[in-house]
Amino acid sequence: MKKTFIFLILLLFIIKGFSQTTPSTPFSKEDYLEKSKTQKTTGWIFLSAGLAITTVGIIGFANTDDIYDNSTDTYGALILTGPLIALGSIPFFISSGSNARKAATLSLNYQPIHIPNQGSLVQSSQPSLSVTITF
């Protein structure tokens, strides 16, 4: 019993030692934009690979003469795995959009406006709130 208790205590220390910690500095706008771009690229790669694999499977299956040939099993597997790979791109697109929204900046700017004043236009500036989303 004593050995088991000591083992469990040591196990708890080991688990705590390998756990993740929060970063000391928060992510900047550039970090979120780079992460968003990488995830979007990965999503497009998964989507196009899934569509290409499915297309190869369909074309190969349509060109086989013997349905009971071993190659039809391969084409059938391609037809089934292609859409699964394409569906795997959805989480990457969702994460990309989430990170892009985190990188959006909110700023206060002054927009020039023209105000009519006794038959002429006077240029003045008006404060405006702008949201900038960079992709």
Rank of each mutant, 00 (worst) to 15 (best):
residue 51 L to G: 14
residue 87 L to S: 07
residue 27 F to H: 03
residue 98 S to M: 04
residue 15 I to A: 15
residue 109 N to P: 02
residue 23 P to F: 09
residue 38 T to E: 06
residue 14 I to W: 08
residue 23 P to R: 11
residue 103 A to K: 00
residue 53 I to S: 07
residue 102 K to H: 04
residue 72 T to E: 10
residue 83 P to M: 06
residue 62 A to V: 11
residue 22 T to S: 09
residue 73 D to K: 08
residue 108 L to D: 14
residue 7 F to I: 12
residue 53 I to G: 03
residue 94 I to W: 06
residue 78 L to S: 02
residue 108 L to C: 13
residue 55 T to W: 07
residue 106 L to E: 07
residue 107 S to G: 05
residue 73 D to S: 10
residue 70 N to H: 13
residue 67 I to E: 12
residue 108 L to E: 15
residue 81 T to F: 06
residue 119 G to Y: 11
residue 87 L to Y: 07
residue 54 T to G: 07
residue 57 G to F: 00
residue 73 D to I: 10
residue 15 I to G: 04
residue 79 I to N: 00
residue 113 I to T: 06
residue 17 G to T: 01
residue 12 L to Q: 13
residue 13 F to N: 15
residue 55 T to S: 12
residue 69 D to I: 02
residue 76 G to D: 12
residue 18 F to N: 13
residue 29 K to H: 06
residue 73 D to A: 09
residue 21 T to F: 05
residue 49 A to Y: 05
residue 71 S to W: 05
residue 8 L to Q: 09
residue 101 R to C: 04
residue 32 Y to M: 11
residue 44 W to C: 01
residue 89 S to P: 06
residue 111 Q to T: 14
residue 69 D to M: 08
residue 111 Q to L: 14
residue 61 F to V: 01
residue 73 D to H: 09
residue 24 S to V: 10
residue 46 F to V: 00
residue 27 F to L: 11
residue 60 G to L: 02
residue 30 E to A: 11
residue 66 D to G: 08
residue 91 P to V: 08
residue 14 I to M: 08
residue 25 T to Y: 04
residue 91 P to W: 07
residue 54 T to D: 07
residue 66 D to E: 15
residue 39 Q to L: 15
residue 57 G to H: 00
residue 88 G to F: 13
residue 53 I to W: 03
residue 10 L to F: 14
residue 109 N to G: 06
residue 65 D to A: 10
residue 13 F to Q: 15
residue 50 G to V: 01
residue 68 Y to L: 12
residue 43 G to P: 00
residue 74 T to A: 05
residue 41 T to D: 13
residue 99 N to Y: 04
residue 79 I to C: 01
residue 105 T to D: 13
residue 86 A to Q: 06
residue 72 T to K: 13
residue 53 I to M: 11
residue 13 F to S: 12
residue 33 L to A: 04
residue 84 L to R: 04
residue 98 S to A: 09
residue 82 G to S: 06
residue 69 D to C: 09
residue 104 A to N: 03
residue 30 E to D: 10
residue 35 K to D: 04
residue 91 P to D: 09
residue 85 I to M: 06
